[in-house]
Write a protein that binds this DNA or RNA. Structure first.
Lengths: 253, 253
DNA sequence: CCTTTCTGCGTATGTCGTACGCTGTTATGC
DNA sequence: GCATAACAGCGTACGACATACGCAGAAAGG
């Protein structure tokens, strides 16, 4: 019976372990000239300024005044860097719900907080996600979301499902609005003219006889006026919370 | 007043226009040796077999027995090819709801149909979407979804929002499950051991005092058993439909 | 038949991630 | 004080990729 170390489960990338503070500096060798947080912050700054596509290893290195390959002493791969960028990009969660907040108000605040982050950091949506969250801030968001549901009679699995449902909605809504915005910028259309332009395009393509319902939507002018994206977000959020409320009530009975 | 041609709105890529059948062959020049559909089908086959990352222009060309640059006579860019791949990959919509179907049953069928497509074509989720749908089949799905809501008192804009909400949910759920699956395959873990392994990893990282709610979820064994992903999907779907039902009832009153 | 217009595609360019190995630095064990 | 081990920085090189450009040959109109 050999001594079993605690390395059960799949291997965790070294840089993630250091994000949890589980890594000390080796006793020998030269002092590191950079640090993982400095690299990640620089990468985030590049993404904020020029988008995720601008984040290349050479660009980040140049920004730091270092050579490209120097970065690989700190992060194992670009994917690892991206994972850490997501953690930093989201930032700390909005914190546990204030006392005397019911679950619905708490989750509303939670969802709006993520909405706000994604509105300012659209590139977060373009990071290819490779697995469930294991970075500190990500799990912090989860924790605070779970706490909102503390007073309910939902099972632990149901709480988790509810959070997944909500965060999925927030991400999806943000993806849609940012796509419209980015597509418009690429085509050189004013943001306010985006939806009308899309409506005209669709109107030109479809045959009203084959797409009657879609045609009705178009003639109703739904795509002609640009709604406040926040209204759109609030609409879906209320629908989902209504659905969750039905479940919470049933469990409470 | 110059004659206004119908090229209002942003430019539509040539290959998309040909997907709508709005393009005839030029009268001169050699006969084309390939066709856009043949190229797209080949690309879809490659993605089905080896994932979206394997879809490069050179790989598709090789598969067709042609040179890389020959493809550019048919599609303007790789992005254009991807857009067409999405259209073909989704395939035709499940059709309008059968007669005497209420909106909830219709949308349930609609959502499960997309769920099924995404389960078989996980790569669809990895295609970076650059704008609102303008390809024939995509708008076909939209049309059929709208028809499900024909009998309700919802406004046209609300119908659209409801569909966006649903399709967003379906995509998000599929993204999560496929990420777990892909992440597990990359780490060499059995699919059934994925969630437990994730649970152990999180348990090792978090401090129960700082993440009490998360710790409670872990000790409840939520992540230890792997649920049927279809159950998870059905759970969220019912929540959302409950929320929509509340709205439909309010409008009907 | 000649010109126009198109197809197929070879070549070349620039960008990217990253494997490999050399050079110089630092702290430890003697 | 000195050898040595462990590490930091990074120059070079490789393979993959999207794609701009331009040339050769094919098909149809005049």
């Amino acid at each position: 019976m050999a001594a079993q170390t605690d390395d059960s489960g799949p291997t965790i990338p070294a840089a993630i372990e250091s994000a949890w503070g589980l890594r000390e500096r080796p006793p020998k060798g030269p002092r590191p000239g950079m640090s993982v947080p400095a690299i990640v912050d620089t990468a985030v700054r590049v993404a904020d300024a020029d988008g995720l596509a601008a984040v290349s290893m050479s660009r980040v290195a140049k920004e730091l005044g270092a050579a490209t390959m120097a970065l690989y002493r700190y992060v194992g791969s670009k994917d690892e860097l991206l994972m850490l960028m997501v953690d930093t990009g989201y930032g700390p969660s909005p914190g546990p719900p204030p006392p005397d907040t019911d679950w619905r108000a708490g989750l509303t605040r939670w969802a709006w907080a993520e909405h706000e982050v994604l509105r300012h950091r659209g590139w977060l949506l373009h990071v290819p996600i490779t697995g469930p969250p294991i970075t500190p801030q990500q799990l912090g968001w989860m924790e605070d979301g779970l706490r909102c549901l503390d007073g309910t009679a939902l099972g632990e699995g149901e709480k988790m499902s509810v959070l997944l449902l909500l965060t999925g909605y927030v991400r999806n809504e943000a993806t849609l609005t940012s796509q419209v915005a980015e597509g418009g910028r690429a085509a050189g259309v004013e943001p306010s003219e985006m939806m009308p332009a899309y409506g005209r395009t669709v109107a030109r393509l479809i045959d009203p006889a084959r797409f009657p319902a879609l045609h009705r939507v178009l003639t109703a002018g739904v795509l002609s006026q640009d709604d406040d994206p926040d209204d759109e977000f609030a609409f879906g959020l209320d629908r989902i919370l209504d659905g969750i409320e039905a479940l919470v009530r049933r469990r409470a009975a």
